[in-house]
Every structure is written in structure tokens, then in C-alpha cells.
């Protein structure tokens, strides 16, 4: 068992080092809720970000937020504020911090942390109801976070 864990960690370490400049979920530096540096080391793609925000299988942000620009996506939620104008209200570093771990900006918020892997109570293996296993990772990958941030930055009023 111990050997198993060590191997898993080694594998993760290798995988991470494959992309130079990627910041691991446990290494993200928050400053006043903001994250200055790109998590993937690369710029985000707003077209991909738009899909992630609207897709149930990816970010599913529309479960809680309405986005006028995504009018083709039915059933948008009312839990969080509407995201129209988010690109005016927040800087890129603020948006990155909010998406990576919103609780750094808004303590106690209901919004889940999308780039976090530690500190959970009874973490599960996605939506199976079973315990998390060694495949457990952040809800969105570093580049997906960057893509979402790039998309949010385009939401201007």
C-alpha cells in the first residue's frame, strides 16, 4: 500500500513536470484572493472557456450562474450573480483566483473551488458516490482554468 502511494506520487510528479511552467493545485499563490500567474504557463483560449462554462460535463458554471452570451444553453441557474460584465468588474488575476478557489475571495461562499485537491471532507470519485481514489484531481485542469478566465474576461457590458 505504501509503495503504491509513493508510485502514484512519483507518477503525478512526472506528469506535472511534462508541462514546464504548470502550477500544481497545492502550489497556487493567492494574494488577496487573486492569482497573478497563469496556472498552465500559457494563455487561455476564450472559445474553449466558453464551452467549459456552459457544459454540464465540464465547468457547469451555468448550474449556478446565468450568462447572457450563452443564451443557447437552457436552464441557467440563479444561485450566484449573473456573469455578464464579469470582465469589467474583475481583473484577470481576480478572475483566476475566483475560479481556482473562490473561498479565497469570498469566504464561506457556496461556489466550489475548481483547482484544489486537498482539505475536503469525504471527497468522492467524481459523481459515483464512492471514495476518491488515486485518480483524484482538480475539477478543471490548469489550462481549462486559463481558458475559463480568458472567456470571463470577454464578458463586458
Amino acid at each position: 500500500m505504501k509503495l503504491h502511494i509513493t508510485t502514484a506520487i512519483a507518477a503525478v510528479a512526472c506528469a506535472t513536470s511534462a508541462w514546464a511552467g504548470e502550477i500544481a493545485p497545492t502550489q497556487v499563490a493567492f494574494d488577496d484572493g487573486q492569482v497573478a500567474q497563469s496556472l498552465s504557463g500559457a494563455p487561455g483560449d476564450p472559445v474553449s472557456g466558453r464551452e467549459i462554462v456552459g457544459s454540464k460535463k465540464l465547468g457547469n458554471c451555468v448550474a449556478c450562474h446565468a450568462v447572457g452570451d450563452l443564451s443557447e444553453v437552457p436552464f441557467q441557474g440563479e444561485i450566484g450573480p449573473m456573469l455578464d460584465g464579469a470582465g469589467d468588474r474583475w481583473s484577470e488575476a481576480e478572475l483566476r483566483g475566483i475560479v481556482a478557489n473562490a473561498k479565497m475571495m469570498f469566504p464561506e461562499t457556496m461556489m466550489p473551488a475548481f483547482y484544489k485537491t486537498e482539505g475536503f471532507i469525504r471527497p468522492g470519485n467524481a459523481y459515483t458516490g464512492k471514495a476518491a481514489d488515486e485518480t483524484f484531481g482538480p475539477i478543471l485542469a490548469a489550462q481549462q482554468i486559463e481558458d475559463v478566465v480568458a472567456y470571463l474576461a470577454t464578458l463586458k457590458e
Partner: peptide
């Protein structure tokens, strides 16, 4: 990181997706 209260006490009456 959601409790029963997050959905059923703080947000009843609202839509969560559909």
C-alpha cells in the same frame, strides 16, 4: 464542499440548473 443547508436552507426557491 456543499452542505444540505447550502442548497435547501440558503437557496430554496432558486434554480440550480434545471
Amino acid at each position: 464542499e456543499l452542505s444540505c443547508a447550502n442548497c435547501h436552507e440558503d437557496n430554496y426557491g432558486r434554480m440550480i440548473r434545471a
